[in-house]
């Protein structure tokens, strides 16, 4: 290449006839890998309620509570998506592997209360 002004003009002109690189969000979506760390999913069947996830969560976003009786336990996961930083440390920490992440990233809500989900 020789020195001179306007060197990018040819390169830019080529692209006028190419498809734009933009993905226009609501109409087209970026393909996300299955391994993308989105919203946490919870499987209440295998959970033993050890709350290690809550202990390791850096943001204090997750909590597992027993909604059943002392004998017949049934667990519920309370997740504050507004506080969650999507690090997925809870998934790594869970001894029973009852937490896993999903590539769901469309979590916006109109109210803060809607971000608090019970699973």
């Amino acid at each position: 290449m020789k020195k001179g002004p306007g060197k990018i003009a040819g390169f830019a002109l080529e692209h006028v006839f190419k498809k734009p690189a933009t993905i226009q969000y609501p109409f087209g979506k970026l393909k996300l890998e299955e391994s993308y760390r989105g919203k946490i999913e919870y499987d209440a069947e295998t959970c033993i309620g050890c709350n290690i996830c809550a202990r390791d969560c850096p943001a204090g976003a997750i909590k597992v509570v027993n909604v059943g009786t002392k004998e017949e336990k049934s667990f519920q996961c309370r997740l504050d998506v507004g506080h969650c930083i999507f690090c997925a440390q809870c998934v790594d920490s869970c001894p029973k592997k009852c937490l896993h992440f999903s590539p769901n990233i469309e979590l916006a809500a109109f109210s803060r209360d809607n971000l608090k989900v019970t699973m």
Binding site: A12, H15, V16, K18, P20, T22
Partner: peptide, 9 residues
């Protein structure tokens, strides 16, 4: 045109 030159929509 400016956008298309930059590969935008």
């Amino acid at each position: 045109l400016y956008a298309r030159l930059q590969n935008r929509v």
